[in-house]
């Protein structure tokens, strides 16, 4: 089984830097790179009936948007370095999902960006990186 390095991205600059650093690392170790985008989603939210009805359609749209706007450009860019790159989209709790995807695919390392923005978004994203550091079973590299 070939080595796998995983990077969690969120469409932010630090995410891109994390992906680039992860690509370098993969290149150096001859590992495969998985770029993972997690769409924040909880099975325990409260929705209107109409939202429920549209949910399947929205989900496809969300996955589509994540693929075309964030993952595809990254995958294309990093493929040029000669490594094997794949982009994956999941719904769920960001840190938990990154963790479980890493476990399932036996990733040897996880890279993640830390947004230096202000306010709530930083708080939220900061907690993803922080959470991941706390719970991951493999080394985590946090990229500012």
């Amino acid at each position: 089984m070939s080595k796998l390095i995983m990077v969690g991205v969120d469409g932010s600059e630090p995410g891109v830097r994390a992906a680039e650093l992860a690509a370098e690392e993969a290149n150096a170790n001859g590992a495969k790179l998985s770029i993972v985008y997690v769409i924040e989603w909880s099975p325990y939210s409260f929705n209107t009936p109409e939202e429920n009805e549209q949910r399947h359609k929205r989900r496809e749209e969300e996955i589509d948007a994540a693929n075309t706007m964030i993952l595809k450009p990254l995958v294309e860019k990093l493929s040029t370095t000669g490594i094997e790159v794949e982009g994956l989209v999941f719904h769920g709790h960001p840190a938990k999902t990154l963790n479980s995807v890493a476990n399932e695919n036996h990733a040897s390392r996880i890279f993640i960006g830390r947004t230096g923005g202000s306010g709530i978004s930083q708080l939220l994203f900061g907690s993803v990186a922080g959470n991941l550091v706390q719970t991951a079973k493999v080394p985590v590299t946090v990229v500012p």
Binding site: P43, S45, N47, N52, R55, H56, F90
Partner: peptide, 25 residues
């Protein structure tokens, strides 16, 4: 509780959400 939810179906309407919606009515 989600014991039988396939992780690949995450993002669809969960059983909990359907129950909560129906209950609110």
């Amino acid at each position: 509780r989600g014991d039988y939810s396939n992780p690949n179906d995450h993002g669809e309407v969960s059983h909990f959400q359907a129950l909560a919606t129906a209950l609110s009515g």
